[in-house]
Structures are given as C-alpha cells and as structure tokens.
Design a protein around this nucleic acid. Structure first.
Lengths: 236, 236
DNA sequence: GCTACGACCTCCCCCGGCGGGAGGTTCAAG
DNA sequence: CTTGAACCTCCCGCCGGGGGAGGTCGTAGC
C-alpha cells in the first residue's frame, strides 16, 4: 500500500481520513481503517473502485447488492478465463507452426497472422465459432481430404482460365458447383450458412492476393481464378 | 477497427500510411495494409503495441524474437489464468459464506473481507501459500478439532486474566506453550515456520480488536488476552 | 534551542490504448 | 453548386495510480 493510493482514494471520494491534524496531516480513524481493509480486499478480487464505492456506501440499504456484485464479478472472471484459454490455444498453435519445420519460417508465420486478421474482419466472432465447430466435426483427416480435393479443383480452374475457356462455359459452371459443394461442408446449415458463405465470397473477392500468399500457387494466378469463378457463378 | 486507432498507431510510429494525397489524406498501400493485419493479429493475442512494434521491426534481424515473444506471452497468460482461478475460488468461498445461513449476514461478510486484507498485510503471498498447504494437509476435521481445542484455551486464558493470575505464573506459561503447540500445526517447518509464526504474532498484537470481531468473544477481552499471553511469553 | 532528516502535504504531468468532440477541409454524388 | 459524408489536426477524458517538484511538519540528537 503506497501513500499515493490513499491520496487517490481521497480524491475520488472513496476513502478520506475523517480527521486532520491542525497541520493538515491526515488522521485515519479506526473506522477509516476498517473501510480501507474492505476496499483493499474488494480490489484484490478485481472490482473497480467505483463498484467498491457503490457496494460499501449502499450495502446498508441493500444487503443483496454485495452478493449481486460478487456473482457478476464471478461471471466476468469466467469470461476472462475463457478468453485467456482461447488465446493460449492460438498461441500454442502458432508456436507449433513455427517450430515443427526444422528452420523457423517467419514469413509463413506472418502470413498466418495476416490471415487471422482477415478472417476476423469478415466473420463475426459467432460465425467463427460455428465454422470452428464444423471444422472440428470434419476432423483432421476430413479437412486434409477436402484440402486435397480443393487443390485438384484449383488446378482444373487454372487450366480453364489459361486455356481461354469462357466463364460462361458449362465446364466453368460445373467447376463452381463442385467448388461450392466442397466449401459447403465447412459452413453451418440454415441461413447462418448462407451468411458465412456470402462473407467468405466477399473475403475471397477483396483479399485474393493476401489469401493466395499462403497457397502454393502464385497470388496473381489465384486472383485471376477467383474473379473468373465469380463471373461463372453470376452467369449461372 | 476505428479510424482513431489508425491515428494512434500513426502517432506512436507503429504504422503510418506511407503516402498522402495532396490534400493530406492518408493513403495506405498494400504493404501498410499487410502490416496492419499483423498488428491486429498480434494485438488480438494480447501483446502490447510496443512489443508488436519491436517484433515487426526487428523480426528480419532476429527470426527467433517472434518465438520468444509468443512463449513469453504464453507464460503471462498462464500466470493470469492462475490468478483468475484463485480469485474465482475466493469469490465462490465468499458467496458460500454469504449464502449458507438463511438470512444474508453482510456484517460477517465485511469482517471476512477485513480479515483477508489484514492477512495479506502481514503474510507474503508465498507464506500464505505455505499456510494454505498446511491447512489442506490438516483437512476439514483437523481444522475443526483445532478450532474447538483453541476455543477451550481461550476460555481458560480469559479465566486466568480475569481472576488476576499474573502473567509470570506457571499456569499462564503453560497455556502459552499449549497455545503455541496448537498454532504450530498450522505453520510450515523450518525457518519459514518461525517467520510465519512471528508474522502471526505481530498480526495479533497490532490487530487483536479487528480479528476479535470475527470471534465469539468480545473484542476487548480478546485484546486483553493477547497482551497477557504476550507478556507471559516474554517472561518464559 | 538548533539542526538535520524523514514524513507529509498539494499540484502537476505521466503511462496504455484508444474514445469522443470541436472546428476546419476535402471529396463524390446529385 | 450544393450537400452530406469522410477526412484532417488538436485537445481532453478514462482507470489506477507512479513519480517528482517544491514546500511544511515533526521528531531525534546535540
């Protein structure tokens, strides 16, 4: 406990010495001291000074307020703990990614970071949770199989683009259908799924270069493919 | 993302638009945008802007810095999670105390809070952990038995005080010995135990009224008993 | 009684990570 | 040409105090 904290409590009216010596020095009475003890204990539980003032001044009127405050604080702590848990998971994932290949690859790590940010820009937290649920439901091999299948679709699409097949061609439209079916496995059902699908298309359209950076194909070829597929989708 | 945050990043030199229009409007280039993505992702992991600036500007020189930063952050999050865990335990304990008796008893709750603060004043965090270990080792019934035995000692001591038996009397010194033996079960062994014992005596001496408030005997009688025992201890 | 030296006082600026507003300029659509 | 939105700079505010300047007070030793 520093004297600055006491001055601060005095300033904000949370706890002031009820007496002063003629010279102006603060004299804390027994009652002040007891109030200080309560303040410190409640601070140590993570309550704000404002909340503490409220419960200490209003507790006489409403004996329930204390319990309400504590349960509310418990909820806040629970939420906070959950947040910390997800952050730990994420950081561990990043460290695994950075550490599993023999040489550390800061470029790949940075790209992953960028993609995390792009993801959070286009999907709400709720949507990201739904998507994570779907991904977990598919399991590791399911995701890996989808990735391989998708790689085949990309190769096929790049061939269509670069051999000059128009986007209105039935082959392009069929590719779009298979592409969307594959992506569909990662989206939740119902109107939520439609929303995440739309968000994903926006994300691809606005950031195909950025996303392409994490893929084995050159970013500009991916960008071309994305706009080609978009055109084919509109035409169908 | 608000524009204020971008201005702030500019101000502290973390991220500034590399170009400006003739009118002075910021133009963020593709590279700026990628840097922004990294900043946002690292912020979302709980890193400070200063740390982010450090790792983004120094990562080229030292590819290890990123990993170090992430592991350090992981440690911080672990500590934070542990703190939150203990706070939750405490709050749950307080809520139990407030809720088990039929009517809520805010006075008792307040007294408990005061005692928590007094405890934290006299024992370091490490010492409190040791004491908690000992208490857990004794178990619930062990603590309850000690409490009953101790109540007997208090009654005995109050009789000695109030019948005028001098503190130098053998009966008083014997009481002190049994008192200390009982308390000894709650203290760790070795020099640590000596330190926590000394801290406990200081706490009793300075705050017998405060502590007595939580006991079934009047505070001033407990205060008298404490100073009597102290005198007896010195005389022996 | 005098003189150190510590403890206390008030007043003010500082941290991080922005939010919000005032007051002015610029841009794009109608 | 106007109008409304977007942008700019500059400044004050939050929370829980930390730290220092510059002055006063209290007490212990000589």
């Amino acid at each position: 406990m520093t004297v600055r904290a006491l001055y601060h409590y005095d300033e904000i009216g949370l706890l002031s010495a009820s007496e002063r010596t003629p010279a102006g020095h603060r004299r804390y009475t027994e009652r002040d001291l007891r109030r200080l003890y309560r303040v410190r204990a409640l601070r140590a539980l993570g309550l704000s000074l404002e909340e503490i003032a409220g419960v200490l001044d209003g507790a006489a009127d409403d004996p329930e307020s204390m319990r309400e405050l504590l349960t509310a604080q418990l909820r806040r702590l629970d939420e906070h703990a959950e947040l910390i848990g997800t952050l730990r998971q994420r950081i561990r994932g990043l460290l695994r990614q950075a550490g599993d290949s023999s040489g550390p690859d800061p470029e790949r790590l940075m790209t992953t970071l960028e993609l995390m940010s792009v993801f959070e820009t286009y999907f709400t937290e709720e949507q990201r949770e739904r998507l994570a649920e779907r991904r977990n439901a598919l399991g590791g091999e399911g995701v890996e199989a989808a990735r391989r299948e998708w790689a085949g679709l990309v190769e096929e699409g790049l061939r269509l683009v670069e051999t000059g097949v128009p986007a209105e061609d039935e082959r392009a439209r069929d590719l779009v259908r298979r592409w969307d079916a594959l992506a569909g496995g990662f989206h939740p059902g119902g109107p939520d799924g439609e929303r995440t699908r739309a968000a994903a298309r926006r994300m691809w359209r606005d950031n195909s270069a950025e996303i392409g950076r994490s893929l084995p194909w050159p970013a500009e070829r991916m960008a071309g493919l994305v706009s080609y597929l978009e055109q084919a989708r509109r035409s169908g």
